[in-house]
Design a protein around this nucleic acid. Sequence first.
DNA 1: TATCATTGTGTAAGCGATTTCAATGACAGG
DNA 2: CCTGTCATTGAAATCGCTTACACAATGATA
Lengths: 326, 326
Amino acid sequence: MVKMKDVAELAGVSSAAVSRYLNGGYISADKAERIKQAIELTGYVRSSQARALRTGSTKLIGVIVPKINSESVSRITAGIGQVLGRRGYQMLLANTDNAPDRELEYLDLFQNHPVDGIVLVATMITDEHRRAIESCRVPIVLIGQNVEGAACVYHDDYEAAFELGHALAGRVDGKIAYIGVTEEDRAAGYDRRRGFEAGLRAAGNPLDAALIRLGSFTLDSGYGAARELLSVDPDVSFIACATDTMAAGALRAIDEVRGMGEGIHRVSGFGDNAFLRALTGGIPTVHYGYLTSGVEATNMLLNTLDGVEGERGLKTLKLGHQLMNV
Amino acid sequence: MVKMKDVAELAGVSSAAVSRYLNGGYISADKAERIKQAIELTGYVRSSQARALRTGSTKLIGVIVPKINSESVSRITAGIGQVLGRRGYQMLLANTDNAPDRELEYLDLFQNHPVDGIVLVATMITDEHRRAIESCRVPIVLIGQNVEGAACVYHDDYEAAFELGHALAGRVDGKIAYIGVTEEDRAAGYDRRRGFEAGLRAAGNPLDAALIRLGSFTLDSGYGAARELLSVDPDVSFIACATDTMAAGALRAIDEVRGMGEGIHRVSGFGDNAFLRALTGGIPTVHYGYLTSGVEATNMLLNTLDGVEGERGLKTLKLGHQLMNV
DNA sequence: TATCATTGTGTAAGCGATTTCAATGACAGG
DNA sequence: CCTGTCATTGAAATCGCTTACACAATGATA
């Protein structure tokens, strides 16, 4: 492995000069040229490990996600990766597999370990999370939840759910049911349900509390909850879900119970999943710019790290949404 | 930041002793105890950067994927992450966004940079790729393609496609069309088409070369190709696709042209996508253990890195498949 | 009792960069 | 000619850890 000293010797300068050449310090034109040639000749590339030790910066960003194999998260991740790559950083990916304590674990690991900053795609934010985030030694940006005192990029789930509920209330005749997710996930659990309820109520068609079920983000859980709803009350004619994935499950349940094709106009979701859109012609849902949220969050983070002018540093950013098929 | 020397002083030993304690070298029981307490007291964690510089190992594995937001890849990635986490490594994720030259770029970056090994979720393998892989300084495992001379974990796409074609040939009356992907992707492009053709032929129902189109892995491309096929020859009654995602697009096209619900039994795919399964009741497709391939590949890689006994090191592993809904 | 393996310990030499520091020479102004 | 800037330069000191080496004990063996 050729090191800086080798380059320096070949170019007839000190290694300090090479370092300065590489980092843009004082260097005369002719030495710069000699160094440049020596580097090309030897194929030298500098050891990021030595550099990291000396400078304390690794150009690594830790990204913590709840589950990599979900459409929303993988889109966000794509956005994060885009920006990271463009700006000379790399992504250290930690998949917690929906275990909130592993989130804390990684938060810890990343701090003492080698990242310059953290992007946390958040689901549940407990007090422990809050504490961990606050005491984090490196800058951190949250995606998906709005947490007081932390830098966040999020969507207004309450508002979106309200609009969806309001729009749906008029169009549906018969009973509406709701399949939500744990309220520990404030955005997808609490805000969506509350917003949806409020939207229905505002339109004069309130949600029957007996027709609310809890899923666990998975397609199968949506299926199970929907089967149960349909058997409990055969009059249920529309099932709103907290995620498109669960809506797909509900759709399947309705199709099974009522016959193929019946379900299509009888469910709604959140997320505007591409498969669902193509295969059903479009159920009512909310489109979020997932990729954008990854991009924005990462730009925000890197701006503070790189000390970009005109940036007030980490802040909170609310992104827009769009109702689909209503 | 508390460093090893601080711990050593507090415990009244040399920093070498602390290092040995941490790495399992000779250390007496009482000193071990004192060191342990000193570490707890100070909250010391060792600098992975200094360690990396000294030992040359970073405990980082580079993972190169063509596109993170696709079901198959994100499942593979989940599998990789599982094993990595369990065995004390971390994942450096590089998303090439389907640009094969960025693959080479990352291969390069990772070598000179800080990874101990590489997992490449491969699509197109050009000669340049082959060269890059061969001259790679760190161990590397490929997923998804069988490349001579490289360690691979892959599925037998030819065989699977053959079986699918053979099984389908009998059940379909009318013309069969095929939407493939670029043959530069040997597994998904070449092998699947060839296998499918061979399967049909073996069953006495060969594929009409005029009814072959090329998609680009996306749902929209499947849709476009299918629309074209249907307009070129209205007698086409079944469209086989090289991926479930394109099959979803084809399904949509058929539904548009022939009316909703018509398409369901008129397409096939590869990958056994969960949404497709739920929303259609199941098209003929091939189930691959994507997560498993991530797991197996990573175990293979780490076994050689950690010098596990009884392991012959990097090798080639062919995983099984399963025909669905035929 | 002499000899030797076995453990346990500290000293010090790196790993390969960055960066402080003092030194140098050139050059403008007085 | 002297002095103050200013651009350039290399020597050397880190960054925090691992590990080769030398040296002590200690107990076992001959």
